[in-house]
């Protein structure tokens, strides 16, 4: 009878093992041998030694405790972070670094979103960008050295190709250099898609042009979202100066609509797109603010 089972520990252990293994085999072991579990995007490249060093630091510092690296196929999530994650993007991650908690934002599409200079400044002092950020400062990584011998071993274990010049170059880099290099490559296996693309609107007029308070509202948005890169009152920093003719004339006589487009869609030079984060009114108020500052300097 079944009661026998509870008198025979070895028999019991065998039955328990079988029961435990069924779900294990179906959901974990069997899928391991299906193609769906080992996809690889065509243009996904193995990490370089510097990037892998950065990824090692990401793991060492436990960045995954606060940042995820997977964008879910949900409408607002794609708007906020970019194209949803594809299975084939992670073929070189051993293990995956998707994380489980977003105390900070998702990083699956951070690669190429900001210029390097942004990352250096942000790692050194996140609060310089977002006064109320709770991210720890990581400027101390600048005094960390990279060890070519160790990195060679790491590259070998991963089976990534490398050159001796690449290794010879490592001692001249810091841990922070490596981390930034890793940041810039995350998620770049997928073709970069602008989250929300605003159609050409260079001809559009600023609907807030007649509003005398628009530039003040714009200033508030500016201080929160733009100042860290473009400096106090648009004087420039990581990003270009916004109030002189050099920037404004670069593309000929720049129109209000064109400024809107740049804010909304970003540029290839490192300006991230804001269409997914700022509504129309906020962007137009920024245009008013830039115009206001520009007239002040003139």
């Amino acid at each position: 009878m079944a009661g026998e089972l509870y008198r025979r520990p070895i028999m019991f252990a065998v039955v328990a093992t079988v029961v435990i293994l069924i779900g294990t085999i179906v959901t974990m072991f069997f899928p391991m041998f299906t193609e769906g579990m080992h996809p690889r995007l065509e243009n996904l490249k193995p990490y370089t030694a510097l990037q892998l060093a950065g990824k090692d630091i990401y793991m060492r510092e436990g960045c995954n405790n606060c940042h995820t690296q997977t964008v879910r196929p949900l409408r607002t999530e794609v708007m906020r972070y970019g194209e949803y994650s594809k299975a084939g993007e992670f073929a070189f991650d051993r293990p995956f670094l998707w994380g489980s908690k977003r105390t900070g934002p998702d990083l699956a599409r951070i690669g190429g979103k900001y210029p390097d200079a942004w990352h250096y400044k942000h790692f050194e002092n996140p609060q310089a960008f977002f006064a109320q950020s709770n991210m720890p400062k990581y400027g101390w990584l600048q005094s960390g050295k990279l060890d070519p011998a160790a990195m060679e071993a790491h590259m070998k274990v991963n089976g990534f190709p490398y050159t001796q010049e690449e290794m010879a170059d490592l001692p001249s880099k810091t841990e922070l250099d490596a981390l930034v290099a890793y940041m810039q490559v995350i998620g770049t296996g997928v073709k970069k898609a602008v989250p929300v693309t605003v159609a050409a609107m260079a001809e559009e007029k600023n609907p807030l042009a007649g509003d005398p308070n628009a530039h003040e509202r714009g200033e508030k948005v500016y201080e929160k979202e733009c100042e860290a890169c473009h400096g106090d009152d648009g004087r420039g920093g990581i990003g270009p100066r916004l109030t002189d003719d050099i920037w404004l004339n670069k593309e000929g006589d720049i129109s209000d609509g064109r400024i809107y487009e740049i804010i909304a869609n970003g540029t290839a030079n490192g300006m991230p797109p804001y269409a997914g984060q700022l509504d129309k009114d906020k962007i137009w108020s920024l245009v008013s603010y830039i115009r206001h500052e520009q007239h002040k300097t003139k």
């Binding site: 294990t24 959901t27 974990m28 899928p31 391991m32 769906g36 579990m37 080992h38 996809p39 090692d56 299975a87 993007e89 992670f90 073929a91 070189f92 991650d93 051993r94 293990p95 995956f96 998707w98 160790a150 071993a153 790491h154 070998k156 274990v157 991963n158």
Partner: peptide
Amino acid sequence: AVPASLTKSYSLFAGVNSANVQWW
């Protein structure tokens, strides 16, 4: 995992598969 040194190793599993093993 495959050890690279005494204090560092890389998981035997990669990407999606490693995620499945880890949460199992």
